[in-house]
Simulated scan of single mutants.
Amino acid sequence: MASECSSTKGGRKELENELKKLDIETLTIEHPEVFTVETMMPHLKDISGAVGKNLFMKDKKKKGLWLLTCRHDRPVNLATLAKTVGAPGGLRLADESILKDKLGVAQGCVTPYALFNDESNDVKFLLDSDFITGGHERVFFHPMVNSATTGMSPEDFLKFVKETGHEVVMVNFEEMG
Score class of each variant (00 low, 15 high):
133 T>D: 10
51 V>E: 01
160 F>Q: 00
151 G>E: 03
169 V>F: 03
10 G>K: 15
129 S>M: 03
161 V>Y: 04
12 R>K: 15
176 M>N: 01
65 L>M: 13
59 D>C: 11
177 G>Q: 00
75 P>A: 12
95 D>T: 01
82 A>Q: 10
20 K>H: 00
38 E>N: 10
3 S>I: 14
69 T>A: 09
129 S>R: 03
3 S>E: 15
117 N>L: 09
25 E>G: 04
135 G>K: 04
119 E>G: 15
115 L>M: 14
43 H>P: 08
171 V>H: 02
40 M>Q: 06
163 E>K: 15
121 N>F: 03
28 T>D: 10
143 P>S: 12
93 L>R: 09
62 K>E: 15
11 G>R: 13
48 S>T: 11
88 P>I: 00
64 G>R: 11
35 F>Q: 09
11 G>L: 08
160 F>P: 11
173 F>G: 05
120 S>C: 12
65 L>Q: 09
37 V>A: 13
18 E>S: 12
78 L>S: 06
138 R>K: 12
21 K>P: 14
24 I>W: 08
21 K>A: 14
175 E>H: 00
137 E>N: 08
72 H>P: 08
145 V>W: 00
124 K>E: 11
169 V>S: 09
140 F>R: 01
15 L>Q: 09
66 W>V: 11
53 K>N: 01
63 K>V: 13
118 D>I: 06
175 E>K: 03
22 L>Y: 13
69 T>F: 06
11 G>W: 15
78 L>W: 04
82 A>V: 08
62 K>V: 12
138 R>P: 14
4 E>I: 10
103 L>C: 12
81 L>Q: 07
168 V>G: 05
136 H>K: 02
5 C>K: 14
103 L>S: 08
87 A>I: 02
16 E>T: 11
40 M>C: 09
66 W>R: 07
147 S>M: 05
101 D>S: 14
49 G>S: 03
8 T>V: 13
176 M>C: 02
152 M>T: 05
15 L>D: 10
54 N>W: 00
169 V>K: 13
134 G>E: 04
114 A>I: 05
127 L>R: 05
155 E>P: 07
166 H>A: 02
87 A>S: 03
97 S>L: 01
85 V>Y: 04
117 N>W: 06
133 T>V: 05
100 K>F: 10
2 A>T: 14
142 H>P: 09
64 G>S: 15
139 V>D: 07
96 E>C: 11
176 M>R: 00
153 S>W: 00
90 G>M: 07
162 K>R: 13
126 L>W: 02
131 F>Q: 07
35 F>E: 09
19 L>M: 11
163 E>N: 15
49 G>A: 02
54 N>M: 00
174 E>I: 00
157 F>A: 04
140 F>A: 04
61 K>V: 11
39 T>V: 10
125 F>L: 02
35 F>L: 08
